[in-house]
């Protein structure tokens, strides 16, 4: 499984819920539908990724990145 963000294209922002339904049907486990910024987050088996990229209303599918701060006692943060 990989954690992904799906960026919904401009034309489908108003029907982001429908896009999410399509993504679910294609095997994505949808965790969040962020309708203000038009992004859907979740996870899916890596081999299903091309199915999502070709789905209607999808601008891009990107693997989630991790962010790490320096420890609290570090001089540079």
């Amino acid at each position: 499984m990989i954690h992904i963000t799906v960026t919904v294209d401009q034309e489908h922002l108003r029907v982001i819920g429908d896009v999410a339904s399509v993504l679910r049907a294609k095997g994505m486990h949808v965790e969040q539908v962020l309708d203000n910024i038009g992004i859907i987050t979740g996870s899916l088996p890596e081999d299903r990724r091309p199915d999502l990229e070709s789905a209607e209303g999808v601008e891009s599918v990107d693997e989630q990145r991790n962010f790490q701060l320096a420890p609290p006692d570090s001089g540079v943060q």
Binding site: H3, T5, E31, Q32, L34, D35, N36, I37, I39, T41, D62, Q64, R65, N66, F67, Q68, L69, A70, P71, P72
Partner: peptide
């Protein structure tokens, strides 16, 4: 622990 990922950051922006 100072760590996070896109999902949380994008949820925060939203």
């Amino acid at each position: 622990a100072g760590s996070g990922n896109d999902g949380g950051i994008l949820a925060g922006i939203d």
